[in-house]
Design a protein around this nucleic acid. Structure first.
Length: 474
RNA sequence: GGCGCUAUCGUCUAGCGGUUAGGACGGAGCCCUCUCAAGGCUUAAACACGGGUUCGAUUCCCGUUAGCGCUACCA
């Protein structure tokens, strides 16, 4: 049997990081088994329609490198892949269930259900289960609004094996007569997921733990239809720092947010994969290819995992350091452009990136933490100025500047040699020149190696900035 | 309330009966050093509780507790 997995989000307008993790696991599993990964849009709630949501979802998935083989825009043999386009399929199936007595039409009004609940009932009282078929048919033909509910046995239990949790057992007496078809003719999740997973030949249902309690209903439906039951794997939830289910209000949950902040897709995928899974050894930095190779459902944990931004930051840094400057460059061009700094050559930018690589957390830092690569400083760090720009400093800077001007080669080694010999001649420690010079050419108290910084900036910039500092920093 | 799931350092986790309970992030300290980083080294920090089973439980079983999830004509 070939492996077919799917990610079946409802289009809410953005891709939740928890959703990305679910999608990633389903994707990794499918790829590893040379199977098929499907994207299916579960848009059966008309009241929650969001314009452009599907497009955004697909874009976020593609950004992360979680590519689906079948789905909207990639029609395979099992489409359509958008549930709102599959209504006739659900109707046919639900009718079959009604005819076979495995589901029934329910004419109860919202008011009645509300009263029922208000009176303390925790489940539907099955009031319409006993309506004779002929009467139900008559009422349907008369246009009576109604839903279709599944018949749940009153006793016994449903057992199933979950790939991550083991055997699970739930008493039928605690399962409600679930609505399958809503008054508006749309299926509920429970009907649609079963019909679609079966008709799309899904072999492994990999989804969030929030679906575990309703899985027995799905099992029952598979049995009613006489279908083979797929394997289930319910993933642990992603949590807020306070351990509640990950949600906005407590930070960013949309993968687009992280992308916009300058997190690498490689880091995002690596980090999220490790929230609930690990290879069993001490490796932590994984590429998508390595994840596909080593992932296994057996090693997925059962407990929820807190989304820890500190670890993500570290991981992002690790991936940035491992990435060649030429690969980083296209990622920061837009950020540069937004600040009007898109005039620098690729060669210059690659030097900047190599220098900044290991002091950056997100890619935006290549722009925001080191503006001095893009324009001369207009303000100078006050603390550094107080500490390093002494009355005797200007004279020393003048000598240093003259030495630098006379250099034949303006590279880091030559600059360093010039500075150190100047310091020696002036009988002061090199720090007496290094710190003021850094302040003069960058305006900042810290940053990359001064000599390399000067080399990248170039002689003209360095000399000009030193002159300017001598004027400004009296 | 009912049902279900879960439970190792603050966080992510390794562990699949006998370990000095390991690693990573974060914290602290030291080293390196022109600053900031990066890197290296060191260090503090955990088996929720109570019963069993067993020669022996972090590990298996049962309770308790706690957390979370579900309990919609939302997914």
């Amino acid at each position: 049997m070939s492996v077919r997995t799917r990610f079946a989000p409802s289009p809410t307008g953005y891709l939740h990081v928890g959703g990305l993790r679910t999608a990633l696991y389903a994707f990794l599993f499918a790829r590893q088994h040379h199977g098929t990964f499907i994207l299916r849009i579960e848009d059966t709630d008309q009241s929650r329609k969001v314009e452009g949501a599907t497009e955004k979802l697909i874009e976020a998935l593609q950004w992360a490198g979680v590519e689906f083989d079948e789905g909207p825009g990639k029609e395979g043999a099992y489409g359509p892949y958008i549930q709102s386009q599959r209504l006739p399929i659900y109707h046919a199936h639900v009718n079959r269930l009604v005819e076979e007595g495995k589901a029934y039409r329910c004419f109860c009004t919202a008011e009645r259900l509300e009263q029922l609940r208000a009176s303390g009932a925790t489940m539907y009282d099955r009031h319409c289960r006993s309506i004779p078929a002929a009467e139900a048919k008559r009422r349907v033909e008369a246009g009576d609004p109604h839903v279709v509910r599944m018949v749940v046995p009153e006793s016994g239990e449903v057992r199933f094996h979950d790939e991550v949790r083991g055997d699970v057992e739930i008493a039928c007496a605690t399962i409600d007569d679930q609505v399958l078809l809503k008054t508006d003719g749309f299926p509920t999740y429970h009907l649609a997921v079963v019909v679609d997973d079966h008709s799309m030949a899904v072999s492994h249902v990999i989804r969030g733990e929030e679906w575990l309690p309703s899985t027995p209903k799905h099992i029952l439906l598979y049995q009613y239809f006489g279908w083979e039951i797929p394997k289930f794997a319910h993933l642990p939830l992603l949590l807020n720092p306070d351990k509640s289910k990950l949600s906005k209000r407590q930070g960013d949950v949309a993968v687009e947010d992280y992308r916009a902040k300058g997190y690498l897709k490689e880091a995002m995928v690596n980090f999220i994969a490790f929230l609930g899974w690990n290879p069993g050894d001490e490796r932590e930095i994984f590429s998508m290819e390595e994840l596909i190779r080593d992932f296994s459902i057996e090693r997925v944990g059962k407990a929820g995992a807190v989304f820890n931004i500190d670890k993500l930051n570290w991981m992002n840094q690790q991936h940035i350091k491992a990435m060649p400057a030429s690969a980083v460059l296209p990622l920061i061009r837009p950020t540069l452009a937004a600040r009007g700094w898109d005039t620098f050559s690729d060669e210059y930018m690659r030097s900047v990136i190599d220098l900044m690589k290991e002091r950056v957390v997100v890619t935006d830092d290549f722009v925001n933490t080191c503006p001095y690569f893009y324009e001369a400083p207009s303000v100078y760090d006050e603390a550094s100025r107080a500490k390093n720009w002494k009355p005797e400093t200007p004279a020393m800077m003048r000598s240093l500047k003259d030495r630098l001007a006379a250099l034949t080669a303006f590279d880091a080694a030559s600059i360093e040699a010039a500075l150190r010999s100047t310091a020696e001649e002036l009988k002061v420690g090199a720090g007496k020149l290094i710190h003021p010079m850094r302040l003069a050419i960058s305006g900042a108290a810290n940053g990359p190696s001064l000599f390399h910084l000067a080399e990248v900036l170039g002689r003209e910039q360095v000399l000009g900035r030193m002159e300017r500092a001598l004027e400004v920093l009296q």
